[in-house]
Design a protein around this nucleic acid. Sequence first.
RNA 1: GCCUCUGUAGCUCAGUGGUAGAGCAACCGCCUUGUAAGCGGUAGGUCGUCAGUUCAAUCCUGACCGGAGGCUCCA
Length: 656
Amino acid sequence: MTELPDGSTGLDLFPKATGMVVMRVNGVLVDLATELHAGDQVEGVPIESDEGLAVLRHSTAHIAAQATQKLIPAAKLGIGPPIKDGFYYEFDLPEPLTPETLGDIEKEMQSIIKSRQTFKRRVVTQSEAEKELAAEPFKLRLIKADQGSTVLDSEVMEVGGSELSIYDNVNSKTGEHCWSDLCRGPHVPDTTYIPTNAIKVMRSSAAYWLGDQSQESLQRLYGTAWPTKDAMKEYLDFLSEAEKRDHRKLGAELDLFSFPEEVGSGLAVFHPKGGVIRRVMEDYSRKRHEEAGYQFVNTPHITKAALFEKSGHLDWYADGMYPPMHLDAEFHEDGQVKRQGADYYLKPMNCPMHNLIFSARGRSYRELPLRLFEFGTVYRYEKSGVVHGMTRARGFTQDDAHIYCTLEQLPSELNSLLDFVLGLLRDYGLTDFYLELSTKNPEKFVGTDSEWEDATRILRESAESQGLELVLDEGGAAFYGPKISVQVKDAIGRTWQMSTIQVDFQLPQRFDLEYQASDGTRQRPIMVHRALFGSIERFFAVLLEHYAGAFPPWLAPVQVVGIPITEAHNDYLTAVAQQLRERGVRIEVDTSDERMQKKIRSAQKEKVPYMLIAGDEDVASGAVSFRYRDGTQKNGVPVADAVEEILNAISERVQV
RNA sequence: GCCUCUGUAGCUCAGUGGUAGAGCAACCGCCUUGUAAGCGGUAGGUCGUCAGUUCAAUCCUGACCGGAGGCUCCA
């Protein structure tokens, strides 16, 4: 309970030194300049809080827009919301933004901030706003749009709530009116709340008005803003760390894979070292699947159209498929059809093929759950602008399985499946997860509501029983059924969608799948689609970025490099290497003419887990010396102990 | 698919309207070495592709093929 004189505002309660940027009055976020009344429940919002950061960034977006309009008076304002780690502002511009302009805009922003402008809120009527914004066609569209229409989602900060407001930026020394923008706010009290050394214009790009492909393409300016210089530095460091870990870069540096232009966009080739990692990943997965009761199958890469007509893919996802090859047609001289041709498609999914295996003969309830597994290579015609290294490729191999079971078996099957998935991901070194439940997309689905409800409920229950955080992804499901996906956090905190588990009542119907029940009746199985890596290529990329190329020994393409101190120690190390090689260790001895320091440097750059160094002292005592990737060393280790240490790390799949 | 940017040696990058260089890597020598680059030499590019402008194009223009960042999309 605080007593304040009449006419007091939040600025009296929370002067700048308190670090509050806006306040919550009776549950509503408002400017600090808002007048307070007796009995109001008031709570300050600090700049470091999520809401405070959003306000800081939103206000910075205004500064960016003001700067842009000052430099480019013809710029028409679009929208300018805060986003994760920053903000953007969209403009309709006569010319696209160039890197030089971005620098100029940033300079102009600095000078606006230094001129100390206050953000003054002013409520306007619709007709006043229309008059005032006559020169801003996009803002006009916003206020004329139906308030309930779907275009006005939460990202649009301009309008919303019960009234329209305009924010005036006023020079606090001269009282001069500098700029205005339609905006629902709230904002920081004045520009000095924005630290000039903690904002940055990042980049520009094109973006459709309100994210709608059928609308105008605008220029979007991205920027970032933080409470302190250090906070921004931390963010920029994170970005550069992410860049260093980029799998496309590491893939080339470590000679793991490439995307030859001759092959085509989004189609990777694996080089020997990448091939080793991939093979080890697959081998381990195979072993675990065998132990978990999966049966291995193989299916072709192409198939006649009828199969994908039956599955519904050609109805729903023809756009995502490579166009067909028309084969076998023959014509008479007069052009009349002699022999009807057929369309063949590259498969975008494996499930229709697996269904054919299920229905190849009569199935008994005794066979269920039937788990068919395949490393199945699929091809999807991703739009040219979305292809991205191995995380969004046009050809990739799924660790794909389809489980056919009864409704009664479904819950326990899903539970054990989730255990299996999470356990396997942990073995590859990913340990931080949450689950996401994707529900029916009302625009794009097949089947009945009750089937969807059942499937969604069972999935939800089994996800909840894992005790992990569960996030809802409304409308995110595939057309044939709801799914759980496992989201993984990597070493620097980024999340990746990995495994997906989808329940499907539809394809069994379309394929008329049946099994004979114990009472002799014919019943329809339920199908579960699941991929744990998602795709091997993608999982490979995630691991590569997660480990920054420094794979744990069991996955490393070269596990040990032997480095003789002089040529005289080559034979000794070669003999040690032979011992390890016989135990299955991937070891190379560097017998080149280089000096040992250079050899260490090379091995270090290749991120080899172990360097075994040997010189006269080691030879004399039947030992070797370790150098690890972190630069530490362990000298004079008896060969038998060294072998043991390496073999142990590999078999335990630990990181070193 | 849309917008902007971009494409020179295996990699990282200079460079010019008169057909090109550096460092690293590769290869060949010399050096014989204790924890991240010893020294010297050699070789390597139709400057993404195809057109156009020009006496002349790696450079200017266009289309196409790659790539990057976004938008849209992601079964």
